[in-house]
Amino acid sequence: MTATAPVLVEPASPAPLAPPPPRPRRRRLRRLLGNGLVQAFLLVVGLVWITPVAGLLLSSLRSAQDSASSGWWTALADPGQLSFANYAALLDDAGMTRAFWNTVLISVPTTVLVVALAALAGYAFAWLEFPGRDWLFLLVVALLVVPVQVGLLPVAKLFGQLGLFGTIPGVVLFHVAYGLPFAVFLLRNYFAEMPREMLEAARMDGGGEWRVFVHLVIPVGRPALASLAIFQFLWVWNDMLVALLFADSSSQPLTVELQSQVRQFGSNIDVLAPGAFLSLVVPVVVFLAFQRHFVQGVMAGSVK
């Protein structure tokens, strides 16, 4: 029995004084007890995780007066405090609703463009020959971790000259460029896994690369494209930094609009809390609807 246990023993101790294995019954009892502790611990962790969001949700449903005089948890005992009045006010707020639509107008085109351009380039890097291909792809891998900050100043100057500064297309272009390295990396690797014979057969059937791309590569690559699209969408939906610089007051998304209100934090919880909740509801719904794709996308995208 001891012969199979060398992994557990310190190499230095020649004759380990292993305690006799506990009797099965005691062990089961201990395991049961341990399991109870584990459950209790994880329950506490879960509570800690859910409390801050519960705080936001309940705060968003309380009046400014209530928020100023007592904590959101008092609403648990007194549900009469809760109403949708703040949300109604938010929908009447022209700045907020425009910011919400700006967020949509930025996230959707960015997602479409990133996926389309990266699919084309990914296929080229995986299966087509062109000079400098391998070298260029290594460059793409290197660009994976370039921080957005490096691009802010030069691109702001460039966009200023091109008249793109302060516009939605400008914000979109910046996002597309900084989303591409990861997108190309992900799709190239996915496409490269396709069996060569399948591709050769499609090429034999006639039809140029474009036909092969549309009728074979895209359908086969669907799972990767979906993961990428979801990841990219959430990334841009949640962005604040890029829009803070490149958008002006008419093109700014929800995150920037809310950020400008944080300065008066404390006096405007009835605006901030429902706004923040509105901005997080879309990603959370996307997350719950496409859980598997989302987790894969985030896992793969974490190298960014």
Partner: peptide, 9 residues
């Protein structure tokens, strides 16, 4: 899935 902004608030 939540933005840093929302998490910040």
């Amino acid at each position: 899935a939540v933005s840093f902004l929302a998490a910040g608030i």
